[in-house]
Amino acid sequence: MNRLSRRLLILGLPLAALAGPALATPPKRMIAYKTPWCGCCGGWIAHMRQAGWTVEVVEREDLAPIRAQHGVPDRLASCHTAVVGAYAIEGHVPAGDVDRLLAKRPAARALSAPGMPAGSPGMEAAGREPYTTVLILNDGSTSVFGRHNGA
């Protein structure tokens, strides 16, 4: 190895080490809006945190304005709304679906688990029922995004 190659190798290693964190995946952060009295929302937030998400919790008496701002219709509403990047996450959506949404980055407004399905993250104490997560596209139409508990 000549002197120039060795110098580049020696100088390049610290630079590569510094560049490593900059090239890493961005942190998984979201804001979750919930009402002060809902306990199952805390279960969903714990699920997201266990999956590696940093969740900032904001309590509001009325979540309808948050849902309206992010294009979530009342028929697809649940008890809490999270926001991650350009997407709203409505209700008890599993962390794996949120991760898949961000990996695929579809032209959509939100991902919803309408209502409060038994057996969804945060709703385990209610039993277990099949449910789907629904992608709310930018034009307001929907498509099934995920099937859970045998749905």
Rank of each mutant, 00 (worst) to 15 (best):
I10K: 10
G12V: 03
S143N: 12
T133H: 09
D74T: 05
G20L: 07
R60T: 04
E129N: 11
E129C: 15
M48E: 14
P21E: 11
L137H: 13
G146V: 14
W37G: 06
V98H: 11
V93F: 04
I66G: 15
T81Y: 00
A17K: 03
L23R: 06
G39R: 03
A125S: 13
A107V: 08
C38F: 00
L9S: 12
V98G: 08
L135V: 04
F145L: 08
P114K: 09
V134G: 14
D139I: 11
V57Q: 04
D97F: 01
S143K: 07
A95P: 06
E61Y: 11
G91K: 00
A103N: 05
T35I: 03
L11R: 06
T35V: 04
A46Y: 00
A107R: 11
G12F: 08
S78C: 00
L9E: 14
T132W: 00
W53N: 08
N138G: 12
C79V: 01
A19Y: 07
L76F: 00
F145T: 04
G52E: 11
I89P: 06
P14Y: 07
R109A: 13
L102H: 13
L15T: 08
D99G: 09
E56R: 15
D74P: 03
C79M: 01
Y131C: 13
L76H: 01
K104I: 14
P117M: 13
D62V: 13
D62H: 10
R67I: 06
I31W: 05
L101R: 02
A32Q: 03
R109C: 10
I66A: 10
L18S: 14
E61I: 15
H92W: 02
L111W: 06
L137A: 12
L9R: 15
N138M: 12
